[in-house]
Write a protein that binds this DNA or RNA. Structure first.
Lengths: 338, 338
DNA sequence: TTGTAGGCGTTATCAC
DNA sequence: GTGATAACGCCTACAA
């Protein structure tokens, strides 16, 4: 069964394809009478314009690609969801690029731009090297989320990692902790380094020793937090508090503590980062630095879309603030109920 | 800067576009010498074939659309992730269609098929009415996951909802419970009805009364489980056990119990459905019926792709079995440690 | 306001 | 093995 084309519609209502086309692109330019005729023919033939042809003609796809480390993490899936909503409302489709945290996959996805498969890319927490990214992003619309693009003009949206990590650490210090551990993500990632620096800075600024054995490299995932906490808590001099660079690691640490019979927050206070869904549900509920996920998503998408349309962007680089959310895992309530 | 086309490559190596094209589609048919020339020119010009043109010419996109109620739920995001992996390995791209559980959105996404934006659709847990779906699925490749397409020939992959719900309920009965509650999803969805029926069947088959006030309609989400449990547990005759049709609702119920000082599983045993990530992490860890997510994803994708390629499918309808995963929330360990 | 016709960049079918 | 050339279905000057 051959596909119904504009030609068929045109023939049916004895008008030219140009007129039919105009009904879609600029209905005002068609006389009401003919417009009706066209609508009727479209209806009768159950015609739908072929997006492929339109795309080729206009050399654009009206779709964007979201490159994302791992949609299983609710932090990412939340952002993805928000991006899709904004994009959809602007008539853009979202192609999914889950990289499973692999730089190679990331690179492969970036080449979709060269193949004209998508009009632009939102790159979340990139893992591949900056040159690779710059090569593509120099020629096509790319917005990076969660990482500053150093010495390049790629637009980005990030949160205040250094500052927030500092805030989290100082929260623990205020609660009286002196021996505080920090779990970072892979230090190959700038985000991880920023958060670690914020921790170290806060410690030193408050005249506290940073015990190197308590500053550990994880990978943002649950298992690494679990393993690290297990090790630290069974050591000779366990810390009394933990600043984790992700909620997943923080929750892993909670589980580790429970396994060892260490009470949270009484014996071991924990603060996370991200505010994933599980943070409010786990036991005890996790105190955390909430990232402005909605804003991150909305702004980056809006930036990308105006970039695609060639509009001058309102802003190229945005730094958003995180928010400390106090729940149970840090012992604030304990202290303040006394 | 004009885009580099095949013509440019052809000119550069003094060959025809046909030959250049063949280097991509059928390299064997080009003499090794010319093949080299073409590769070199491609390299020098940094040429990438334009997918739009290719798509139009071949009238296919090599991409599929996954229509999904809510990617924030790790059950769905897990499946999505698995689908994407299988699709990617077969050279297919995945377009994301998060419907936020809205039938209208679902319908809109289905029309991507008519617009030739995608070659096929995997429809997860559809919410719109069967006629609507049938209209499109009759003409284009569609595979449904999680719902049987009654009296239509749309291929589908489901799990054994009735049976599994029965298994879950009988597990509770074996543990000695008599007054058991059931939380279903929206009863407008077949999945919900199946699971509810399985519960009722198991109760009656074991000679137990089904107290209507304990058979409650939720919506699969956390909040509904929380609210329903709160109500039931504060009633005059609270149940001693709960069979929930989703892990989210089950975890909501755990939280509700904790809020009321009801111990899980000692005073209130709970079993969930799905085996989302949080199930193994929450406190107490949730006993649940694990759906074969990986299989669901793999099979549906393979079915869709062979459907798209016009191959005769190995199978049109697949029913997979769930697996009972015993953790802490149902009290099995309690009983068996005695 | 409407119609004609030339692309958009590729692939596939012919001849050679 | 290679090269012209006609589609694929739509959009948009330009002409009428």
């Amino acid at each position: 069964m051959r596909q119904v084309t504009m030609g068929d519609v045109a023939k049916k209502c004895k008008l030219s394809v140009a007129t039919v086309s105009r009904v879609y692109t600029d209905p005002e330019k068609v006389s009401p009478k003919n417009r009706e005729k066209v609508y009727k023919a479209i209806q009768e033939l159950n015609y739908q314009p072929n997006a492929l042809a339109r795309n080729l003609r206009k050399l654009q796809t009206n779709s964007i690609l979201v490159i994302i480390p791992n949609i299983m993490n609710t932090f990412f899936s939340y952002i993805l969801c928000a991006i899709q909503k904004v994009a959809f409302n602007s008539g853009y489709k979202v192609l999914l690029g889950d990289t499973d945290s692999s730089p190679e996959m990331e690179a492969k996805y970036l080449y979709y731009l060269q193949q004209k498969l998508v009009d632009g890319v939102i790159l979340l927490y990139p893992r591949s090297n900056p040159e690779e990214i710059q090569k593509i992003a120099g020629e096509y619309p790319v917005v990076i989320v969660g990482q500053q693009a150093p010495e390049s003009s790629i637009p980005f949206v990030i949160n205040s990692n250094f500052l927030s990590s500092q805030t989290a650490t100082e929260h623990m210090i205020k609660l009286g902790h002196r021996r505080i551990a920090h779990f970072s993500g892979r230090l190959s990632q700038p985000v991880s380094r920023e958060r670690q620096k914020g921790f170290v800075f806060a410690m030193e600024a408050n005249g506290l020793d940073v015990d190197k054995s308590l500053v550990c490299e994880g990978d943002f995932y649950f298992d690494s937090g679990h393993a690290l906490a297990l090790k630290l808590l069974s050591s000779a001099q366990p810390p009394s508090a933990l600043v984790a660079a992700s909620d997943e690691m923080a929750i892993g640490a909670i589980k580790a503590a429970r396994k060892l019979g260490v009470r949270v927050p009484e014996d071991f206070a924990i603060i996370g980062f991200d505010d994933i869904k599980m943070a409010s549900i786990c036991e005890p509920a996790l105190t955390t630095m909430a990232q402005p996920k909605e804003e991150l998503a909305r702004l980056s998408t809006e930036m990308l879309l105006s970039y695609i349309k060639g509009e001058p962007p309102h802003q190229n680089c945005v730094v958003l603030n995180d928010q400390l959310i106090i729940r149970e895992s840090c012992g604030w309530a304990l202290l303040n109920n006394d």
